[in-house]
Design a protein around this nucleic acid. Structure first.
Length: 478
RNA sequence: CGAGGCGUAGCUCAGUUUGGUAGAGUGCAUGCUUUGGGAGCAUGAUGCCGCAGGUUCAAGUCCUGUCGCCUCGACCA
């Protein structure tokens, strides 16, 4: 009987249809709502709260490493966008154009920023004159627009929220150092806060950012075995500086071009959290970024003393944790399911029997494990549990990634694995874009990155058999 | 942008084959009873049947167009 009722709001099982499971979750956990604007969603308060927690932590890490926040215009005149050739070619197919102001046709059309390199470059040209002005390490939080052909909430939408860091340095070495520093910050953030293990590496030329000399990436593996590019950090060398004329007078009185970087992560990270940690009961949010870390559910709340006790516990726990208490007249069972859907790490049940015994029940979202805890040591226990959940989520995700990572020594084996076993495949590559294209054509898998941690599986390219230059992580990607 | 699917109550959908007063479940509101895994009973409110044309005495249903959404490809964070 209870089971029949449970089916009413149940979501599609992730093993049956992962894509449907995903869209069920984003709707049922109140993360997004569709709008009348194609490819654009409302990011609802619960999802926005996750984003705010991401922002808070990244902002701290950015500032600790000497970055300042700024804000650039959202419009870019066509002539400015076109200054760097590779850049405009890369982005032109997906920019939105503004052609009119009121009823007047604009003399020059402007695009809505798909990314702000060109605006930062124009600005840097104006404010950088001397080596004393360097480095400039700016970041902005904003939204960007890319006219995507197919869209999915958080993973690919026409407009999305992100941060973009843009820095200018006196030397090549400094720029490279910054590029790697920010990649490391992203990796640390993903692993420590989002509990998502990542592979750090460099993108192949085919996959690198339009206008960059090198793109570095953190790649993570979703529960269905598809890869998600979760953050990128680019070294631009002096290419943009030359196109935009960003020069400074160095100590030796010679005129030099700056060396630049840019790096970004987006609300796509929310998609990663969903697809890495979620299960058939809904979201599972790592405690460190969960908008609500613990929800108090009073049992038999009409009985004397129960609501008062719930309120007392809420007040006490709120000193240390992000806590809410649900005192609505929904049934306990409904509330259990609701907060599981929303991925709240810990549920606290308190009823008349508990009050008599000076205890409560704690249920952890990741394992479903239930423990009785004395009210005297409640906050200590909650702290430990949150930490344990955070660690467990990371370890589970890491184990899944390791179990979903294979080696391929020859092309037949490679094709067999890609076709039958979801996940990463490590294989050698000659460095030739033709092989990348062939592999993609044959298998739909793409090169995810050349990891910093290289292994020598063989000395031959998996595809053409010529001498191998690097080991590459391959996989199907979002 | 290619292939497929779908637009009817807040949500999930039936009704379209064969044109004839707009339906169900769930949700929502109110009351009582309930409360340790999505409660029960009673009463009530809710619809430009995606949009625009057309055919017809009559269109949710037939025709044409159009917009949107979903899935899978191609392209991208």
């Amino acid at each position: 009987m209870a089971n029949d009722k449970k089916l009413v709001e149940e979501i599609t099982s992730m093993d049956v249809d992962f894509a449907k499971w995903y869209t069920d979750i984003v709707k049922k956990a109140d993360l997004i709502e569709y709008t009348s604007v194609k490819g654009c969603c409302v990011i609802r308060p619960y999802a926005y709260a996750i984003w705010e927690n991401i922002q808070t932590n990244l902002n701290r890490m950015f500032k600790e490493t000497g970055h300042e926040n700024v804000y650039m215009p959202m419009f870019i005149p066509e002539s400015l966008l076109q200054k760097e050739k590779d850049h405009v070619e890369g982005f032109a197919p997906e920019v939105a154009w503004v052609t009119h102001g009121g009823n007047e046709k604009l003399q020059e059309r402007m695009c809505v920023r798909p990314t702000s390199e060109t605006l930062f470059c124009e600005h840097y040209k104006n404010i950088i004159h001397s080596y004393r002005d360097l480095p400039k390490k700016y970041n902005q939080w904003c939204s960007v627009v890319r006219w995507e052909k197919t869209t999915r909430p958080f993973l690919r939408s026409s407009e999305f929220l992100w941060q973009e860091g843009h820095t200018a340095h006196a030397t090549e070495e400094e720029a490279q150092e910054e590029t790697i520093r920010m990649l490391n910050i992203y990796a640390e953030f993903c692993e420590k806060y989002l509990a998502i293990p990542v592979i750090k590496g460099r993108k192949t030329d085919k996959e690198k950012f339009a206008g960059a000399i090198a793109t570095y990436t953190i790649e993570s593996l979703m529960h269905d075995g598809k890869a998600l590019q979760s953050g990128t950090s680019h070294n631009f060398g002096s290419g943009f500086a030359e196109a935009f004329g960003i020069q400074f007078t160095d100590k030796d009185n010679s005129l030099k071009h700056v060396h630049q970087t840019s790096w970004g992560v987006s609300t796509r990270l929310i998609g990663a959290i969903i697809m890495v940690h979620g299960d058939d009961s809904g979201l599972v949010i790592p405690p460190k970024i969960a908008p609500t870390q613990l929800v108090i559910i009073p049992i038999a709340s009409h009985k004397p003393g129960v609501l008062e006790k719930a309120e007392e516990l809420e007040k006490k726990l709120s000193e240390k944790f992000r806590v809410i208490s649900d005192t609505t007249d929904k049934t306990p069972g409904w509330k259990f399911a609701e907060y599981e859907m929303k991925g709240v790490p810990i549920r606290l049940e308190i009823g008349p029997k508990d009050i008599e015994n000076n205890q409560c029940v704690l249920v952890r979202r990741d394992t479903g494990e239930k423990v009785f805890v004395s009210l005297d040591e409640l906050d200590k226990k909650v702290g430990e549990l949150l930490e344990d959940i955070q660690n467990n989520l990371f370890n589970k995700a890491l184990k899944h990634r390791e179990e979903s990572t294979s080696y391929a020594k020859d092309y037949d084996e490679f094709k067999e694995i890609i076709a039958n076993k979801p996940g990463f495949v490590k294989a050698m590559w000659c460095g030739d874009e033709e092989c990348e294209n062939k592999i993609k054509e044959d298998t739909t898998a793409t090169s995810r990155c050349m990891p910093f941690e290289q292994e020598e599986i063989s000395d031959k390219c998996i595809c053409c058999g010529k001498p191998a230059k690097a080991m590459v992580y391959w996989g199907k990607a979002y």
